[in-house]
Amino acid sequence: MKELLVLDNVSCGYKSGFYINDINFSLSEGIFAGIVGPNGSGKTTLFRGISGDLSLHKGAVYFEGKDFSELSLREKAQKVAIVSQFTEVADITVEEYVLMGRMPYRKQFQFFDKKEDVEIAHHYMHLTNTYRLKDKSMAALSGGERQMASIASALTQNPRLLLLDEPTSHLDITHQVRFMNLIQRLNEELKLSVMMIVHDLSLAGEYCDYLVMMKNGRIFEKGNPVEVLTYENIEKVYETVVVVETNPVSGNPVVFPVSERRMKEFVEKTKP
């Protein structure tokens, strides 16, 4: 497999003091990767380092073998699409919004939208089931619909890599699963590489091929879900007691939290 994205000893962060350090990992083409870790462990900072929103303090990010920071904003936008945690609520129709994804392909003084661009936008709107919302304002959509529209817009960029920052965190389970299934299908059918920040460890275990687990701005563990999502790792990183079982259908790890009271009862019962 060809390497798509390589992070070579990356350090970056904010002037206020928070830094991520010594980040090394590489993603092969077509991968479905997840980043997990507690709040404040540096997941979003890592994304901002990759996208170039934060300049690197040390190390380098290579995309398809080239130093990513040397590409222009436009070239970056043709290769990597980013869906942020919160989609901006602007007074703009869904169709217009999705069409903005063609921005990196517009000529300098291209005033009108090309037919081809509109067709690409419509294609991905059909795929994400947002075509029916075409003339609605983004502000009038539900959280799930908005998330789908932002995926459509990102796909319209025709990227090689899709970066998703906690896309499912404010969706109900129906929309979460629908969303993850869509991403999985895109990953398989379009050979689109995906890297996403996931809060729900069970979702991460179920859908991702590769996980990077972060703690305090460093990588704590990386590898396939079975290696990463062990109860030892999770208890160390999240400082929480959990039980990890195997999903009987898929064989992937599932993570259960345990309440404090039940834990006490359990300990008492099992006392010799």
Binding site: S72, A77, Q78, I82, M103, P104, F111
Partner: peptide
């Protein structure tokens, strides 16, 4: 009008516009 498309992209916020290739 030279900046009309960047202005359109800025409706989505400074950072999102940058992610669409707009300086």
């Amino acid at each position: 009008y030279i900046f009309v498309m960047p202005l359109n992209a800025l409706r989505l916020g400074e950072e999102n516009a940058r992610h669409l290739g707009v300086d």
